[in-house]
């Protein structure tokens, strides 16, 4: 159950997407989100759908990985779809009973929204599948570095993020270990009502927090021992460099943006 969590999971493969500069990937992901919200009809959405599909194919990350990251979102997709089906009243009425009616407009809006959410999830998981967490936080640090002018320590924030990501698997392992230990003492996590189940988690959560704090202390000592003093004057082993591939990818995304704008103009808006 816990090992299904895919946030920040890197999928190792040799591909153009993996080789791209993390900063560019981050910018393109944000750009993608902006463009997909600009889409006003199925024609412009199709452009973004194709862009998503091509990106996934080029990345060489197997499709089942994307399905895995999509699985937890399915309820959200279904709920938004249901809301759209029942609340949007456009086009011809297909069926109606009591106060509820379903229209063609409602169905197509629901479909439109679902495709949009799926594309969003796919592209953002593509970012985490093809980028190592450290590179990703490094990229965030670089992109946000203008904020240093406002006396916000971007390096500290990025370091905190790196550490948080680094410790997710460790903590998951810890949860499994403590759960087993408490099960061995007869703890029951599977039965009982909601409140009882929440209570049953206490013997797991307390040791988990205790050990998380202990790890934090140990880590801070270890960092101090290696003379860590924040980002000032710190150089990097891996320098980030933009290459031709990055600009080519940017070109493709900008072209898609242009395509979406044009298609929005030429065809009737859906939403």
């Amino acid at each position: 159950m816990l090992s299904d969590i895919t946030i920040g999971q890197y999928y190792k493969a040799q591909s153009v997407v993996h080789r791209m500069d993390a900063r560019m990937k981050l910018i393109l992901t944000v750009l993608f989100i902006v463009i997909i919200f600009l889409c006003k009809n199925f024609f412009s959405l199709a452009v973004m759908f194709v862009l998503t599909a091509v990106s996934i194919l080029v990345s060489r990350v197997p499709f089942r990985m994307f399905f895995k990251s999509l699985k937890p979102i399915i309820p959200i997709i279904l709920i938004t779809a249901a809301l759209n089906i029942f609340y949007v009243k456009k086009g011809t009425e297909l069926l109606s009973f009591w106060k509820i009616s379903v229209t063609t407009g409602g169905l197509s809006t629901a479909f439109f929204m679902a495709v949009r959410i799926i594309c969003l999830i796919m592209v953002s998981s593509l970012l985490t599948y093809t980028t190592v967490p450290t590179q990703l936080t490094d990229a965030i640090e670089r992109l946000l570095s203008p904020l240093n002018v406002l006396h916000i320590s971007v390096h500290t924030l990025a370091m905190m993020m790196t550490l948080a990501l680094r410790f997710i698997p460790t903590l998951i392992e810890e949860i499994e270990r403590i759960t087993n230990a408490q099960k061995a003492r007869g703890a029951d996590f599977e039965s009982g009502r909601f409140l009882e189940r929440v209570k049953a988690m206490i013997p797991v959560l307390i040791p988990l927090f205790v050990s998380a704090f202990r790890r934090a202390y140990e880590l801070s000592f270890a960092m101090t021992c290696r003379c860590y003093h924040g980002g000032e004057g710190r150089t990097r082993m891996k320098q980030m460099k933009l290459s031709a591939v990055d600009f080519a990818a940017l070109g493709v995304f900008l072209l898609s943006l242009a395509g979406v704008i044009v298609l929005n103009r030429f065809f009737q808006a859906m939403i």
Partner: peptide, 9 residues
Amino acid sequence: FQYPEYQLF
């Protein structure tokens, strides 16, 4: 289990 002291709560 190993290091059982970490299960005290």
